[in-house]
Design a binder for these strands. Structure first.
Lengths: 222, 222
DNA sequence: GTAGCATATTATCGGTCGATAATATACCTC
DNA sequence: GAGGTATATTATCGACCGATAATATGCTAC
């Protein structure tokens, strides 16, 4: 049966920042639905692109995921800028400075968790099951942070300033207490009636955590 | 082409506890992979059953999920037995008793989170996105717990015993700090090298949280 | 302005999903 | 032990998934 082979008119939209926009869209989808639940079609649709563009600009769905996670942890690194250095240097013998640094770490982490819930959402989605993605993310991004904070906490404990939480558990106590209300913001809105990401609540939250974790900070923590 | 229509010999295994076993298997899978990521085939395979049995014994994948969640929250309810009653009665004017009750709530919750990571895994998987399942779970199971603990915390705050965490945020601070290390146990094992579900660590964790949340409990908390 | 190239768009593949129809088997009742 | 019923097993459906081949389009270099 003869078909009129009419050429289809297509218009082609060109954008220079597709890669970056795909990364942002991927973070939202991966954070909300997890790696398996998120579909490349939904990620592409979110920025008005087509699904195969993901495989063009990235090697695969996994490569997109990795790039997005790198992107986000880089942002976290910038947020924490200056703090890791001050701790690992020699100045760290001064307990009051360590106290101030730790408090600042907590505050910045809380603010970051509120602004970028995707990070802790992705962590929590991935870490419920052993996988290649999980080990990759731990080795590359989480372990450095863990190894940085742990000695700080140990010294604060020895100085009698910190709450009695074991130095190996404090990472999960801190991250859990700091991030859950943002990770589960859709739930928190329904349950508490407040908007947890509002600046007022974020600061209240951060202040509370600092006071709770460092109950014996001399004269409180500024 | 004529085929020898030979009757296939099938053996049929009968079990009386399929429903219960499917619920347990479903919790593990839903906890590890989330609702979308978990497949009914994997759930059935986990107990040596076939996928269509899920639709026979339950109406749908969602119905299985709801039944499994009900099952788990019922177990949590049994774990907390006795505590809710003591608080909501008139005896609650006695601050030292409220303190003891709250401490016991924390301890039991930590132990439950360690033994049944599926509960908080499912919560955290669902609550990253608004959905029918989320609102159902909040209204039916989470809100009652939230509404029980919140007034307890308020009184402990007024008595100057509790850490300075807002009564609307404390739910997420407590649940996050108590559950993350078990929710993300696969990560915690890799990162910390310890087995977080070991009784020794669970009790250390629980003791630490109680002390951290109630820094001014008179004479410490037994 | 045309050739060539980067990339956007369409079409399609094999695989897995949840659901259900079709079928077989074990148990229970009489 | 025959018939009926509950449920286990197989087969199959349409939908969606990620990946990739096939094709079209716009931009750049010359």
């Amino acid at each position: 049966m003869m078909q009129a082979r009419r050429k289809v008119r297509r218009t082609r939209t060109v954008r220079d920042d597709i890669r970056e926009r795909l990364l942002d869209a991927a973070l939202v989808e991966f954070g909300a639905k997890g790696f398996d639940g998120a579909s490349t079609r939904a990620i592409a649709r979110r920025i008005g692109a087509h699904q195969p563009q993901i495989n063009y600009h990235f090697e695969s769905k996994e490569a997109l995921w990795s790039a997005a996670v790198d992107h986000l942890f880089a942002e976290l690194g910038r947020t924490m800028q200056g703090l890791a250095v001050r701790v690992s240097r020699g100045a760290s013998t001064d307990v009051s400075e360590i106290t101030a640094v730790f408090a600042e770490i907590v505050r910045r982490f809380v603010r970051f968790a509120a602004r970028h819930p995707e990070l802790n959402q992705i962590m929590v989605h991935e870490a419920t099951e052993k996988s290649g993605r999980l080990t990759w993310m731990i080795e590359r991004h989480v372990k450095p942070l863990y190894d940085t904070v742990r000695p700080v906490w140990r010294r604060l404990r020895k100085a009698g300033i910190a709450a009695p939480i074991d130095e190996r558990l404090v990472h999960y106590v801190l991250v859990g207490a700091a991030s859950l209300v943002y990770v589960n913001a859709p739930e928190a809105r329904l349950l508490t009636g407040i908007e947890p990401t509002h600046e007022r609540w974020v600061e209240t939250h951060a202040d509370g955590l600092v006071a709770m974790l460092l109950p014996n900070a001399p004269g409180g923590v500024a």
